[in-house]
């Protein structure tokens, strides 16, 4: 965030002064013509302007609004509130801590169940086994679907009397039938199973691509040394896959923080399905519009998200320069 002010510099007028063809590549530096500079300035300036106006300025405004009291209706009604929105969220707002807990559970489940399933599938399917393409296609199909569709499809599976699961369990139509999306003791887990259905395929594809890129000679050498499958994976494959592993860790964390669609679809994120992202929206646009509290929650979500984002950026771009 400290780099924000700099992004305003490369406007069409200011940027071209610094532009030159990279010496390392061309071997000769040639000054660009005025027209070329203008073109380059526009090429950079236009996307940057869009990014700044629609992503970074709103992010800063969110931070600003989190220190105000406002019902969101009239700009003149904005009043300063200091830190009161934050203390309200942490001390008075009952869904806050459950939402934090649910986000943590969400992350833990993805990290300990969904992602490992994806990795396992990738490792198994990387072998030359019969039907590997068919398997891959099957596991990959849910990745194409939106989380909304995942929610609707699983609602058909989970419905209390009409759903597949309770019919398989033989409890459908009886008082003992579990309402998978309605019972607050189980609905978080039911939603996580549905999420895993999609997430595991995603991880599988990413990891599979990485596995295919591994230099075959590495495995040959390990095989000659008599490594078994287990050793092969943990001593040879896993270390080589480090860049992909980082991506997968980051994706898992970000997905856990971004989770929204499926719980919003199920019951608007209430009754056991509270998540930070949903609380933000409930306070921002719902019938009970409390912009200050919603923004404070948004900032909390932002701060948590910046952790993995910065980690990823440092990892990715450190080597670039």
């Amino acid at each position: 965030m400290s780099v924000m002010p700099q992004t305003t510099l490369p406007s069409a007028a200011a940027a071209p002064a610094d532009v030159s063809v990279p010496p390392a590549r061309s071997g000769r530096v040639r000054r660009l013509s005025g027209r070329d500079r203008l073109v380059l300035g526009l090429m950079v300036g236009l996307p940057t302007l869009i990014q700044v106006v629609l992503v970074w300025i709103p992010t800063l405004l969110s931070v600003g609004l989190s220190f105000t009291k406002w019902n969101g209706l009239n700009l003149a009604d904005i009043r300063p509130a200091g830190l009161s929105n934050y203390t309200y969220a942490a001390q008075e707002y009952p869904p806050f801590w459950p939402a934090v807990a649910h986000n943590i559970i969400w992350l833990a489940f993805l990290a300990l169940v969904a992602t490992p399933i994806g990795l396992l599938l990738a490792v198994l399917l990387d072998q030359k086994i019969r039907g590997t393409r068919l398997y891959q296609s099957i596991f990959f199909t849910p990745v194409m679907l939106s989380m909304v569709m995942v929610g609707i499809i699983w609602q058909l599976v989970y419905a209390r009397n009409e759903g597949l699961l309770n019919n398989l369990l033989g409890t459908a139509g009886t008082p003992g039938a579990v309402d998978w999306f309605g019972d607050s003791d189980v609905n978080l887990w039911a939603a996580l199973v549905a999420t895993t259905w999609r997430h595991a395929g995603y991880i599988m594809v990413l990891y599979l691509a990485g596995l295919k890129g591994i230099d075959p000679s590495l495995r040959e050498a390990a095989a000659l040394d008599g490594a078994n499958a287990w050793q092969m994976f943990f001593r040879v494959v896993f270390p080589v896959m480090r860049p992909i592993n980082i991506v997968i860790v980051v994706i898992t964390i970000i997905e856990a923080l971004r989770a929204f669609d499926i719980v919003y679809l199920i019951n608007k994120g209430t009754n056991g399905l509270e998540l930070l992202s949903v609380l933000v929206i409930q306070n921002l646009v719902g019938v009970g519009q409390v912009i200050g509290v919603g923004s404070a929650l948004a900032v909390i979500l932002l701060v948590i998200s910046l952790g993995p984002i910065v980690y990823y950026l440092v990892r990715t771009f450190r080597r670039a320069d």
Binding site: P58, L61, F260, S277, L284
Partner: peptide
């Protein structure tokens, strides 16, 4: 990579 909800109200 930001969660879109962070930008919702200002946008």
């Amino acid at each position: 990579m930001l969660p879109p909800q962070v930008l919702a109200a200002p946008l």
